[in-house]
Design a protein around this nucleic acid. Structure first.
Lengths: 273, 273
DNA sequence: CGTTGTATTGAACGGCCTCAAGGTTGGTGG
DNA sequence: CCACCAACCTTGAGGCCGTTCAATACAACG
């Protein structure tokens, strides 16, 4: 019944599990932090602000594909930045079905959902091997205290996450299977371009069809069928995890895709106010 | 094609419309602000903090049922607190269908979604006559600057809104029509109890079946059918806008309703950190 | 008393699901 | 190097849940 390859705990009943993230050996890396890159997208940062953000990433740990950062109902004690690799959040229902809520890409912050809660409302797992950096709740409070700009950007990031979820809601609730898939592919295409990972008309999408199904509210069987249909019509070509969109405009039209929710029409400058 | 009784602008093309909210006569009220009540739910507030919150409500205006606070794609210039009346946010799709995203109750803050955006991503309309208070973007920044506690609570409120939307997503994506409706009724029941409006096992739910359909991703025909089914089984009785839940536990079981996402397992004290 | 928005009920259709069987791919160990 | 296995994907057949269309009833309000 459980779809994940690991010891997924249905309903989150495994209560006294501390976050696995602290049980791993710390590793050291010195690349340019991609969380700074992420924040810089909203606002020009001072040296001090960059230093504050760097503090969030003091504690990098490696995580393997499929590994859980936490399960539903675990104690919610800290947040994570995702330094490399993809992750997703999910919820299991009583009937055993799973809904995937969000896909996290490098630079994203994980766990903001539970800012006001003491227990996790959704689990999070890695899609591929990666590196995360955990920081406790009070670090965010310190950040609020020390930088108005970072406070605003943090709020902006939370707002953007909500907007992504809103669009997923609309997608799931109101579109046909082929539109759902077309729309999702375009969303990922755009997001990957924004993080600098994306190239032209092709993208690497390391998601199984089962995961896609759980994300889009479909069955994996129907995901497969829809892919073959889209492929037959020349809208999307897929080979394992490599996706090619030969005609972007055609797919945009097919999905009725409007990227305004992604382009961050961001308000000019927090700092001026 | 347009379902709303007013001049809903499909696709939000009415570009140069300033928010109607400023075109109405200001009225004066002196009741205890329900936004303070809302914030107090998360944290004990000092006099100064209450004063700051009061400033957000300097500008109360009356709005009539059905009236739009803004349309999709309008300029996003300010936020609103909802002082009385219900409101909802929505999106129209190209095929003319509408998805309702959230139901706002008195004390809620409207417009946080667009914190990082310069244009509205969703429209907002009143369900009943009410009073709103608009305040510009820089007021939130001032609040961030002046009170760490209020900053944290504002973040908590945004986080809670996201959690509500998450649950709606799961509800729409993964449950049968009868579970969707049962679940939604229980959610509203709980929320109304939290705002102090709710009594025992009955609630006033001023939502047409068409609105419910657009909220739950169903057709209004099927909402009607499902209501009659639930009623025949004695799970829910409905007379116009009055809903009675004769056996709460039975309905909870039917919906597999878990209220953890609503009870704000809130982290003890922001202030201490 | 007509009008307009809202709710009910029936009949027929269809998109997506479930079940099931087979095919493909990549990794592992003999 | 090949055999085997596990995970993943594909394809078919049949069925169900919810939709659409349409007709009727009901309520509030001028």
């Amino acid at each position: 019944m459980l779809k994940s390859g690991l010891s997924a705990v249905y309903g989150g009943l495994k209560s006294n599990v501390t976050s696995v993230v602290y049980q791993r050996k710390a590793i050291v890396e010195d690349q340019d932090s991609c969380i700074i890159h992420h924040f810089s997208h909203y606002c020009v940062l001072t040296k001090e602000e960059k230093a504050l953000l760097d503090e969030l990433e003091e504690n990098p740990t490696e995580v393997k594909a499929g590994e859980a950062l936490w399960e539903e109902n675990d104690a919610a004690e800290d947040f994570c930045t995702l330094r490399s690799g993809w992750a997703y959040s999910y919820r299991y229902l009583e009937n055993g079905s799973r809904q995937i809520l969000e896909i996290f890409l490098p630079g994203d912050i994980i766990g903001l959902r539970e800012f006001a809660f003491s227990r996790r409302l959704a689990g999070v797992r890695m899609i591929e091997d990666g590196v995360i950096c955990c920081f406790p709740h009070h670090r965010i409070m310190a950040l609020f205290r020390q930088s108005l700009t970072l406070t605003a950007v943090m709020f902006a990031i939370a707002s953007r996450q909500q907007v992504l979820m809103t669009e997923r809601l609309v997608n799931i609730a109101r579109r046909s299977a082929r539109k759902k898939m077309a729309h999702f592919l375009l969303e990922m295409h755009q997001r990957l371009r924004q993080t600098g990972t994306g190239s032209g008309c092709n993208l690497r999408l390391p998601l199984s069809q089962e995961l896609l199904a759980d994300l889009l509210g479909l069955s994996s069987v129907h995901v497969s069928r829809t892919f073959t249909t889209l492929s037959r019509e020349g809208l999307v070509h897929r080979d394992r995890y490599d996706v090619v969109i030969p005609n972007l405009e055609a797919l945009v039209g097919e999905a009725e895709f409007d990227d305004r929710y992604l382009v961050d029409n961001l308000r000019p400058l927090f700092r001026a106010e």
